[in-house]
Design a binder for these strands. Structure first.
Lengths: 160, 160
DNA sequence: TATTGTTATACTCTATAACTATA
DNA sequence: TATAGTTATAGAGTATAACAATA
């Protein structure tokens, strides 16, 4: 009751136009609501900074994952990123058309292939990873490094 | 080097098929990656439990927000939920067609209208809010209540 | 001239099923 | 019979611009 906004509100019971912000406190108790809102905000910055590189968040993830796991297979990527195979197939086709990845037949299983980055792929990855790290820190500037670590490890408990 | 998995790996330098999980440690340092993965997981459960009620997460948010803020206008919802007006217009049309919301002309501004829930709307909201709360807790069962609160307040610093 | 809300349109993203080729 | 990967298709979600009505 000490909140001046609340006092003003009750002193002026029926304003013609409600200028007070609506109460979203219930929604804010929901983890899914907060993760969604935070994702939207971060991806907004991501799209802005990545425009020149033509990578969306998922493409970036796959590029980075292949770069750090040379020889990985499509199936491994799908499992690690919880991505349906058809979605990855299209995405790999895009990266392939841009000559960022290379597919090498496996001797053990002729259905599968090992994925790695081309020189262009490595160059692009080396260029964008620091930018993404930077943009992430900026987008979550209200968090200390420790708090960011905390959020990350807590969220990981939800999806695995 | 004490990790047995790592030792096995280096003792067997070129396995025909790589059974070890790929290294996604870099991606996991990115807040956007973790919020996205957590959202996907929670929404998966959401869709499953809400199937019978025919509400997606955004529709649920709007239903709940109107229910707790009778008389709210479309513009207020868009601002509070960072939602573009055309998206809300379509969504309100859906809720209207299901007779869950009611629009009342405002005397102050004949362009705008006050939104509230119908009896059916209130009934549905009373029914689904506890289910969503429950499903949220289940989906984040690896978190204590304090940790869930912590995640929520930390994430809110990102999007506002 | 700016604002509230709607309509129209196109585009991206995603999920599903059906397919091939191998195992 | 099951698995790796692809293709095809449709559906959901989202962004943009243009619009009408009112301020």
């Amino acid at each position: 009751m000490d909140n001046p906004a609340v006092s003003d509100r009750s002193a002026n019971a029926a304003p013609a136009v409600d200028l007070t912000a609506p109460d979203s406190s219930f929604l804010r108790t929901l983890v899914g609501y907060n993760t969604r809102r935070a994702t939207l905000r971060i991806f907004e910055v991501f799209h802005d900074r990545m425009r020149d590189f033509g990578l969306n968040p998922v493409e970036f993830s796959v590029l980075s994952l292949i770069g750090r796991n040379a020889g990985i297979t499509a199936r491994q990527i799908c499992e690690e990123l919880a991505m349906p195979p058809p979605k990855l197939a299209k995405l790999l086709a895009v990266l392939d058309r841009r000559a960022l990845i290379h597919r090498e037949a496996t001797q053990a299983d002729r259905r599968a292939f090992h994925l790695s980055l081309t020189q262009d792929g490595h160059r692009l990855r080396a260029q964008v990873e620091p930018i993404v790290q930077q943009l992430e820190v900026e987008a979550s500037a209200q968090l200390t490094d420790r708090q960011r670590d905390m959020v990350n490890s807590l969220l990981q408990r939800i999806y695995r």
